Simulated scan of single mutants.
Amino acid sequence: MPEIVEIGERPYVALRGKVPMSGIGAFADRMREVIDWLAAKEIAPNDAPFFKYDVIDMEGELVMEIGFPVDDLHSGEGEIVTGVLPAGRYAIAHHHGHPDGLMAATGALLDWGKQQGVEWDANGDHWTARLEIYLSDPREVPDMNDWDTDLQFKLKD
């Protein structure tokens, strides 16, 4: 069952790109670029990696970021961007299982929000903070069917 929680702001470092729905897996495979950039700058992530969906156009391209929360705001370079996940109220739902099930979990969270009358912090296809937080480390949990992921969607203030 989803819940609404208050979350503080979170600085982050990420790789930003435009990808079709069919290209999300290939984009996710580029997470190593963020890890290598952070290591070169001696910046340690302070929490689990995430996918941030800024623009969701199911028929066209998604604008998304894959990255990590960090302690302080930094300057990016090239395709590496930095920013701050805003503080506020978020609807959170937990998904256990293969990432292929995240589309259905997202639909369920959006349906729950509609039933609850929540207002998402979004303007059409443009979202302020729509996140998938990947809680399972693939080195420790190699079977993707056993992965845990949290969906965090920001609500309007």
Rank of each mutant, 00 (worst) to 15 (best):
I35E: 14
G78I: 08
P45H: 05
D121C: 14
V118S: 13
P142F: 04
K52N: 09
I56Q: 13
P2W: 02
E9K: 08
V84M: 09
D54R: 15
R139P: 01
W37A: 03
A93M: 15
N123P: 05
P45V: 04
E9V: 03
K41Y: 05
E79R: 12
D125M: 12
G8W: 05
D72F: 15
V55G: 00
K154I: 01
P2M: 04
A48L: 08
L109P: 14
D121N: 13
F153Y: 14
A87Q: 13
A39E: 14
A93W: 05
I43R: 11
G124R: 01
R30K: 12
F153I: 15
V19Y: 01
D57Q: 02
G8N: 12
G83S: 10
Y53K: 03
S22V: 10
A91S: 14
A28G: 15
G60F: 00
V81I: 12
M31P: 03
E9N: 13
F68T: 06
L155P: 03
A91G: 13
A48R: 06
L73I: 11
I35S: 08
H96V: 04
H126M: 14
I56E: 13
I80W: 08
P11F: 07
V63F: 11
H98V: 13
I66C: 09
L73D: 07
Q116S: 14
W120N: 02
E119M: 13
D29T: 09
E79P: 09
A105R: 12
G113S: 06
M144H: 09
W147F: 11
A39P: 01
G124A: 00
F68M: 07
G78M: 08
V81C: 00
D29R: 15
G17D: 06
R139M: 15
T128K: 11
E33K: 10
V70H: 01
T128F: 11
G8T: 08
E3F: 07
N46S: 07
E77T: 03
F27Q: 06
